[in-house]
Write a protein that binds this DNA or RNA. Structure first.
Lengths: 405, 405
DNA sequence: GTGAAAGCGCTAACAA
DNA sequence: TTGTTAGCGCTTTCAC
């Protein structure tokens, strides 16, 4: 029996009328009387995907019942539930549409992650991957998805941020002038920033970069180093593969780099090293090669330098490579230090600052999940530690002597 | 002027009536006459979040116009658009709700990624991370999000799969009996499987594991190895840190491992090695330690073994570690081979099969994006190559001689 | 260039 | 336990 496909509503107003858009569509329907005497629409062709409503019509039950079969098994008899689920399988109903459910419940079931501009660098940076691991695990434990939001710097694709159906955002290590960050903050969902930038009104998780780097500086100063060079990551969104001026250091848009440099400067100035004369070489790409080339630059500039301080382990690995290339023994001829504490750094015995990267991810997820009703922004500061490896020692011709350990 | 908060519709039917649910809510509204003489609702408190409709009411324009201001700038005058955008900022309207838009447009703007059961292993496996990188880059280029779908093996949390608002799924390297895979295939969106399992009706991207491993086997056979041991990843969802029986090898639920083992067996059987006597040690955890312990097991079982074939680089790194621990020189005393071609393997000169992991991710994304109107399932097979490093050489007391290259 | 109408597919408060 | 009602917030023909 074919249904009249024209418009108009059935004899009773209780059943949904046939949507006008179905007219002329390839999907066929028939009007059936349910057990309450209401007309309902039943699909007699499987071409139009089944919906909760069509399944309900098919079965002659209400939409609530079908919904309950999926979402509140305790709200209906096991037999009825079984009947519903079976019918669903028969007509190929894949269960409630997640998007419609999200709209209704106002929950997306996922967190968004805004990563540093260049995705590839993020995935090639073991520290970033560990952060991702921590966050992903935390999401998994909570049964939430994790949406990687593309933040292509070239296309300034804010649409991706606007389009993301998420219950909250984690922003990982972006410059303070990143337009994607601004777009995220405009969204009416909670946000946690990890590492950078430091924003007054926003929940934050990170470490105390300044004091961690002070610790490293003190260690080097204690060893007797006074003539040092620094390799750092990019300080702004522009590519500047060169010496970073004092001004550029102090106004860096990447707050983490800024804090580390400022701490270094303060510590060395305190023992009489004029920071303006210390070569601080910036590299846009965060890679081993960058670390090597920056180190080369430093050593070319001043071969008397006794220690190369790097603001990341990846860069430090490059420094080690360059030292090897030049036949400089580490640590006898040159001291090299890193920052992060990635696995590979430990393997080669790098002296570095170890930070709990994975925990940062977990904390970020937790913060987003535990929304206090009100209150001040939460600032989580995780502990770091100095790992003294085998890449730092007193300088060769140091006038200071080292009597340790 | 306070609006009557009771129900009922305004004098004209053109404006939306006030939703009953607003009654008694903390949000206040007033009825205003727009320039067409229609009553519209205006929010006079910013507590209830603005919507496209409320903004339209505020401005006295239709919802279409506001929608167009965001989605089709060419459909209205620049001045009007500007007015709309300004008003939006004033009332704190964050732009069209992404979920509602998704429901309407039937596009989620994201792909879902179902990863191997244990998330941590995925993030600690450089091959998996590279895959992720390739996929993420491909999504970024297309302006799509990438949703990591939690697939906790313990909680069998299929809800996460059901809840994922995505336009398609990528399934990366799961066993053929994974319930999450089944749940994904039930969803009415396209799916691409990467690596495993091999499913007849589903789009696929991978490599020819069999012939790649055959190449490796032939290489070892050519070097003169006949007494070999194998370290492989888990063959099923159950933990079995032990020798894998022939039967277990042949019926492995992880098709990639199965294909590699079957190829090895065939190649060695072909030169008279009885495969049943070759120790194949399985490890559930995919880690360097696993590779080491499995290698230890093999060498304890048969110290005369001349080559340890590993089905992944990570495991091979462990094998190298164990050899070092035992004072065995590689390759003089022991040959070790891997599979994947990760960066660290190259660094240590591992002889291995190199596969284009990043390309796999990119291909998976592309396949999902380019949906043919119809046709056979697409099977993409990417090329591999044998990288002869410094960890494979003829066996010490080989009766076969090696005259090459 | 602008507006009205229709409905995407679902859930939840309430009523029966 | 089941059904009815009322939207969630948006886009999109199609008419004006």
């Amino acid at each position: 029996m074919r249904a009249p496909t024209g418009a108009g509503r059935p004899a009773t107003g209780h059943a949904r009328k046939i949507p006008a858009s179905w007219r002329g569509s390839p999907w066929l329907h028939q009007l059936v009387l349910n057990r309450y005497g209401h007309f309902m629409v039943r699909s007699i062709s499987s071409r139009r995907p089944a919906t909760l409503a069509s399944l309900a019509a098919e079965l002659g039950v209400s939409r609530t019942t079908v919904s309950n079969a999926y979402n509140r098994p305790d709200q209906l008899s096991p037999e009825l539930r079984q009947r519903v689920l079976e019918a669903a399988r028969r007509v190929g109903y894949p269960g409630p549409d997640p998007v419609a459910r999200s709209l209704r419940t106002r929950k997306a079931g996922a967190l968004g992650l805004l990563l540093t501009e260049n995705l590839s660098y993020a995935f090639r940076d073991p520290a970033a991957v560990s952060f991702l691991e921590g966050l992903a695990l935390s999401c998994e434990a909570a049964g939430q998805g994790l949406l990687l939001v593309p933040a292509n710097p070239e296309r300034e694709d804010l649409a991706a941020v606007h389009r993301a159906g998420v219950d909250g955002f984690v922003v990982y290590s972006v410059p303070d002038d990143d337009p994607h960050l601004a777009a995220v903050l405009e969204r009416p969902v909670p946000t946690v920033v990890c590492d950078q930038p430091s924003l007054p009104g926003v929940d934050t998780v990170g470490i105390d970069d300044g004091s961690a780097m002070t610790g490293m500086a003190d260690h080097l100063i204690g060893l007797g180093h006074r003539r040092v060079g620094v390799v750092c990551m990019r300080l702004g969104r522009d590519r500047n593969d060169a010496i970073a001026s004092l001004d550029r250091q102090r106004s860096a848009h990447f707050h983490v780099q800024r804090a580390r440099l400022v701490a270094l400067a303060a510590a060395f100035e305190a023992v009489g090293v004029p920071w303006a004369q210390v070569p601080v070489v910036e590299r846009f790409d965060h890679s081993v090669e960058s670390g090597a080339s920056a180190t080369a630059r430093i050593l070319d500039l001043d071969p008397e330098i006794t220690a190369v301080v790097c603001t990341s382990d990846i860069l430090a690995l490059g420094a080690l490579e360059e030292a090897r290339r030049r036949g400089l023994r580490v640590p006898q001829d040159l001291t090299v230090t890193g920052f992060d504490g990635i696995a590979e750094a430990e393997r080669v015995g790098l002296t570095t600052v170890v930070q709990p990267v994975r925990d940062k991810g977990a904390e970020a997820g937790r913060l987003l999940r535990e929304q206090p009703d009100h209150g001040r922004p939460r600032k989580i500061v995780l502990p770091t530690s100095l790992r003294t490896g085998s890449t730092a020692a007193p300088p060769r011709n140091s006038q200071e002597r080292w009597f340790g350990p």
